[in-house]
């Protein structure tokens, strides 16, 4: 069993396991073997001095719910796509919105925004006053630009 940093109970009555990010993938593997086959959601939370990633898992047979938490100071977290395929798009979305780099992800691209978008909107220090416009190039691909151009 992987060493846990902390085990608490949340406000909604769910068990919350806190783990160091080095042990994350190993813990996920063990939980999947215990029957937590449904990875419901991956959430990144910007705590200003650090980034927190929360995984919500569900055991269908025992009807048990659990949350796994990990923290990172350098925006890097190991990817769990090798354990759960459903993590693929969730991690891409969190990379897009929070700027969390999931190491070992097979295709870490932005999910919603164009590739060259500047900044990650859900970070607390994201500058909302800078407007970016989306335009289409000759190949039909979207790109972001600060220049409003004629279309706007």
């Amino acid at each position: 069993m992987v060493e846990l940093l902390e085990e608490t109970t949340g406000k909604d009555g769910r068990r919350v396991l806190k783990v160091a990010k080095e042990n994350l993938v190993q813990l996920m593997k063990e939980l999947k073997e215990q029957g937590f086959v449904h990875l419901s959601l991956i959430t990144g939370v910007d705590r200003k001095d650090k980034l927190e990633v929360v995984y919500h898992l569900h055991n269908l047979e025992k009807n048990e719910y659990i949350a796994v938490k990990t923290e990172t100071l350098d925006e890097r977290v190991p990817s769990v796509t090798s354990v759960f395929t459903s993590a693929n798009w969730d991690e891409r979305e969190q990379f897009d919105m929070m700027g969390i780099v999931f190491e070992g992800h097979p295709n870490l691209k932005r999910l919603f925004l164009p590739e060259n978008w500047v900044g990650h909107p859900l970070r607390k220090n994201y500058d909302l006053s800078k407007v970016q416009y989306i335009n289409m190039d000759e190949n039909g691909e979207d790109y972001a630009t600060f220049d409003p151009g004629d279309g706007w």
Binding site: G10, K11, D12, R14, S40, L41, T43, V45, D46, V54, H56, Y65, A67, L122
Partner: peptide, 28 residues
Amino acid sequence: GEVYARTESSKGEFSVYLVGDGGVKPYR
């Protein structure tokens, strides 16, 4: 605090994860 609530919408499992920091607006 932190709350994770699941519901069944017509499409499937629709759930909301809400983090509050004691303010009048959600933190996340």
